[in-house]
């Protein structure tokens, strides 16, 4: 049975986030005119990292346990690890080191409650240059080839690519297939793609075909996305999403709330169960 391995310290899971940091990410995010797409994505990933750290804490008096290895690779004017602070230059990083190395603690006001909240920050918004998505996938592949060798029985890696445009350096479909060819005994690497938007159009989440997609770039990212395994379909269904047979790990025209929802589903593993 594939995608059934429970996450534990002997079998950590691996998440790789590929983050578009091209110039177009300076544009406003859908529904948030005061916030750029780069800011919204950085905030979503910081929030997700926070949640992932919390999933690894069993007792507040202990530190988090090593359940995840995580990389955040930015692609724009340059391609490489997007961490700041003590993690600068690090590719795959243990959740324990991530927990210990936020660059700062940010104080904000919760708009719903008016209460002050404090959140750690690891990723800062960046937007410059073209969209070398394929180069980022290549870097991820080199990294994951080593990871699956050293974690042959772990839950397979999950790669989540977040972009507002098209690759400027090649065909991401071919490179996604290469990433999927990297496997553990529990299954092949899962590749998710999130197309973020500056428009108010209705997002399309986990489609089963590319027929409704408006252009070749969206269809290309659909093709570059893995078919969802049953447990993710189940989770998506529990969240009220209609997920048909053959659904892919792809979101088109996503606003930031859809991105957050997608990231939470995409990073689910059986560790979340009881």
């Amino acid at each position: 049975m594939s995608y059934a391995r429970r996450v534990d310290r002997d079998h950590p899971a691996c998440f790789v986030f590929l983050v578009d940091q091209s110039y177009s990410m300076t544009e406003p995010c859908s529904g948030r005119v005061e916030e750029s797409k780069a800011q919204a994505v950085a905030e979503a990933i910081n929030d997700l990292l926070y949640e992932l750290v919390m999933r690894c804490v069993k007792n507040p008096t202990e530190g988090p346990r090593h359940y995840y290895d995580i990389a955040v690779i930015g692609y724009g004017a340059t391609v490489g690890p997007a961490w700041g602070g003590n993690l600068t230059g690090s590719y795959l990083t243990s959740i324990v080191d991530i927990a210990n190395s936020p660059t700062r603690i940010e104080q904000r006001t919760n708009p719903a409650t008016g209460r002050s909240i404090r959140k750690p920050v690891w990723l800062e918004p960046t937007a410059d240059g073209a969209t070398p998505m394929v180069t980022a996938m290549d870097r991820a592949g080199a990294m994951l080839a080593r990871w699956v060798e050293t974690h042959p029985d772990s839950f397979p890696p999950i790669v989540i690519n977040i972009s507002d445009g098209a690759a400027t350096d090649g065909d991401p479909v071919e490179w996604a297939r290469r990433l999927e060819s990297l496997a553990t005994s529990d299954g092949s690497t899962l590749v998710f793609n999130v197309n973020i938007s500056a428009t108010e159009a209705e997002p399309l989440m986990f489609p089963s075909s590319s027929e409704a997609l408006p252009d070749q770039y969206a269809r290309q990212l659909f093709e570059a996305s893995s078919e969802l395994p049953p447990f993710i379909r189940e989770l998506a269904g529990m969240q009220g999403l209609t997920v048909g047979p053959g659904a892919r790990g792809f979101v088109f025209n996503a606003d930031i709330s859809t991105v957050v929802n997608f990231l939470q589903i995409g990073t689910a593993t059986h560790h979340v169960g009881v």
Partner: peptide, 11 residues
Amino acid sequence: MDTGNWVRLAS
């Protein structure tokens, strides 16, 4: 909360 104790306080 600061970068040294945020995990304990948040959890």
